[in-house]
């Protein structure tokens, strides 16, 4: 078993766990399959973007898959998920259909927003996915509002509110932290620290680089988590959901992760070296970690290939659908403005 050789997490973490609890084989297989689906989907999206089938902004999640998959494994039916613009992975993890997401990327009528939202603006009430928001940090207040609604209704749902290391510097994040703790709202703030806010390294933008401490002045507990290890993410998510469901208010999880691709498709990524990216890929890839553990535990290469094939088929079917589905009818221009 090839455990991560060096954690992305620095040693400064507030609570540095040792080795996370092992997954069952079933859990490992599910994590592998869900992460693979995101990766293959994103690779295909990148390809379609290059072909001109996808326009505008397209932010890929490759490298960060363990975060959303590990979090989702700890959630129950009814928990809400909301995130920023790097959202394809979150939607797939929420069990939204790949074809609907891909068709939205290509701006077709079969897309989740009927082609009117695009990469950054997709939603599914059915799957409790609340977007998909293009304004950096805006989803943090909105996610806090989802938690407010849970509290108002007295249910035990938790709002999982994702944002990045860049958004973590926005003012409304702290306004939201204050209200969340003041009112003991059930919200998990998942800070996906992928080390770069677009082209700006965390060290160049953040006075406090330990994001788990960002809630300290509001008495919100926080934890740094190895976001490249899906087991560590799941374990942290289990604790966090229990904390929130126990009526203790919000909690912050800093997920230390890494994005392999540029900020968006148009980002040449000159702000970091190729070696840096290669090293993370080689040493810490979240999918390879699971794959290696499964192989070490006796699962056959053949079985893993079958998973890969199943995922590729879903993605290919989605891509095919997304390229052949018609564009929205012109009459759609004037629908969905009011209800």
């Amino acid at each position: 078993m090839a455990a991560p050789k060096k954690s992305v997490a620095k040693e400064s973490g507030q609570e540095k766990a040792g080795s996370p609890p092992e997954f069952t084989r079933e859990q490992e297989l599910k994590a592998l399959r869900d992460m693979l689906l995101i990766r293959r989907f994103e690779e295909k999206a990148g390809q379609l973007y290059g072909m001109g089938a996808i326009g505008g902004f397209c932010h890929l999640y490759i490298g960060q898959e363990a975060v959303v998959v590990g979090m989702q494994m700890a959630l129950k039916q009814g928990d809400e998920v909301i995130t920023g613009y790097r959202d394809h992975g979150h939607m797939l993890a929420c069990d939204m259909e790949a074809r609907g997401v891909m068709a939205e990327l290509t701006g077709r009528r079969g897309g989740y927003s009927r082609g009117k939202g695009g990469s950054m603006h997709m939603f599914s009430k059915e799957k409790h996915f609340y977007g998909g928001h293009g304004i950096v940090g805006a989803q943090v207040s909105l996610g806090t509002g989802l938690a407010f609604a849970n509290r108002y209704r007295g249910n035990d749902n938790v709002s999982v509110t994702y944002f990045g290391d860049g958004a973590a510097n926005q003012g409304q994040v702290y306004e939201s932290f204050n209200m969340a703790e003041l009112w003991k709202l059930p919200v998990i703030y998942v800070i996906e620290n992928n080390r770069y806010a677009m082209g700006t390294a965390v060290s160049r933008a953040s006075a406090q680089q330990d994001f788990s401490k960002r809630g300290v002045s509001f008495n919100i507990p926080g934890k740094q988590v190895d976001g490249m290890d899906v087991r560590a993410v799941k374990a942290a998510a289990d604790e966090a959901t229990a904390w929130c469901r126990g009526g203790n208010g919000p909690i912050i999880l800093e997920m230390q992760t890494y994005r392999y691709r540029g900020h968006s498709m148009s980002d040449p990524a000159k702000y970091r070296t190729r070696e840096e990216v290669e090293k993370v890929r080689h040493d810490q890839d979240p999918i390879e970690q699971v794959r290696n553990r499964l192989l070490a535990s006796g699962v056959s290469e053949q079985d893993l290939k079958a998973i890969d094939a199943e995922v590729r088929e879903i993605v290919n079917e989605a891509a095919d659908f997304a390229q052949h589905d018609p564009e929205p009818d012109a009459s759609e221009l004037y629908t969905d403005i009011y209800r």
């Binding site: 909105l142 806090t144 509002g145 938690a147 407010f148 609604a149």
Partner: peptide, 11 residues
């Protein structure tokens, strides 16, 4: 800014 967003989220 924050409470308007909380309101919209609740909505």
């Amino acid at each position: 800014h924050g409470f308007a967003g909380v309101g919209v989220g609740a909505a």
